[in-house]
């Protein structure tokens, strides 16, 4: 069988994996929805959660699509498509594929047409993401019970503890934004974009209060995300002009 990274066989694999992911998502969605109703939660709130999560997802999903397109030049469409729809993360897959390619003595700057190199890359990408799949079923319940224990002992501290986890993550990702500032003015572009997005979020909060527009609450994060991305374009042009 002659190897082709874009063969019907490869697309069949993608179809199976995507069907699995969609099915699981629908099953969990229905289960949570039913449970929410049992708990007497407002259906409007559940619906709003679906709406705002869907809108929020669009821009990051397009960024993931760009990752698929970038990797497709070397690996064809099916493999990057499959890997980025399941478990994979944008940052991980690109690095994993590049490392695997270089270990095989090639690079991703050209199409990988040697079946053995292609399968080696596939194995490396797959094996690299196994921990989550094993650890969540094994430790998930224990971790959760640990949190429940902290909460039963002291409800308020339990909530502060979880907030601490959130803030740890947010501060690490905010810190990264400053990683290029030593490179000069252009290194500040991500910082300016972050600040613009933060200002848009603040404006949303003010507008909500001023116009009593409760709906703004649900879409404030997507608005600040898209606004920040849109402003990145003039900010970059402006900074590059000033920096010469």
């Amino acid at each position: 069988m002659e190897f082709n990274p874009n063969s019907g066989f490869m697309y069949t694999l993608v179809a199976i994996v995507i069907a699995f992911v969609i099915l699981q998502s629908v099953v969990f969605l229905v289960k949570a929805w039913k449970r929410g109703k049992e708990l007497g939660m407002d259906v409007k709130l559940l619906r709003k959660t679906v709406g705002s999560s869907a809108i929020f997802t669009i821009a990051p999903a397009v960024a993931i699509l760009l990752g698929v397109i970038a990797l497709s030049k070397a690996l064809g469409f099916p493999l990057p498509w499959l890997r980025l729809s399941v478990i994979g993360a944008l940052t991980y897959e690109t690095t994993a594929a590049a490392s695997a390619a270089s270990a095989m003595g090639t690079t991703l700057s050209q199409p990988i047409l040697d079946a053995k190199i292609f399968t080696a890359i596939t194995w490396v990408m797959t094996l690299g993401i196994v921990p989550g799949l094993i650890l969540v079923p094994v430790f998930g319940k224990k971790i959760e019970n640990g949190i429940v224990k902290i909460k039963t002992k002291d409800q308020k501290w339990g909530e502060i503890f979880v907030s601490g986890l959130f803030l740890g993550m947010i501060s690490a990702f905010l810190g990264v934004v400053f990683a290029h500032v030593s490179e000069g003015l252009t290194g500040w572009i991500p910082v300016f974009v972050m600040l613009s997005s933060a200002i848009i979020m603040l404006l949303c909060g003010l507008a909500r209060k001023a116009f009593k527009a409760k709906w703004l609450d649900d879409y404030a994060l997507p608005i600040s995300l898209l606004g920040g991305m849109a402003l990145a374009i003039p900010i970059t042009t402006l900074v590059q002009t000033i920096a010469g």
Binding site: L174, V193, S197, L221, S224, G228, T236
Partner: peptide
């Protein structure tokens, strides 16, 4: 700049 735009609002 998707990550700065995302985490700016969230922060």
């Amino acid at each position: 700049n998707i990550l700065p735009a995302l985490f700016g609002g969230l922060a």
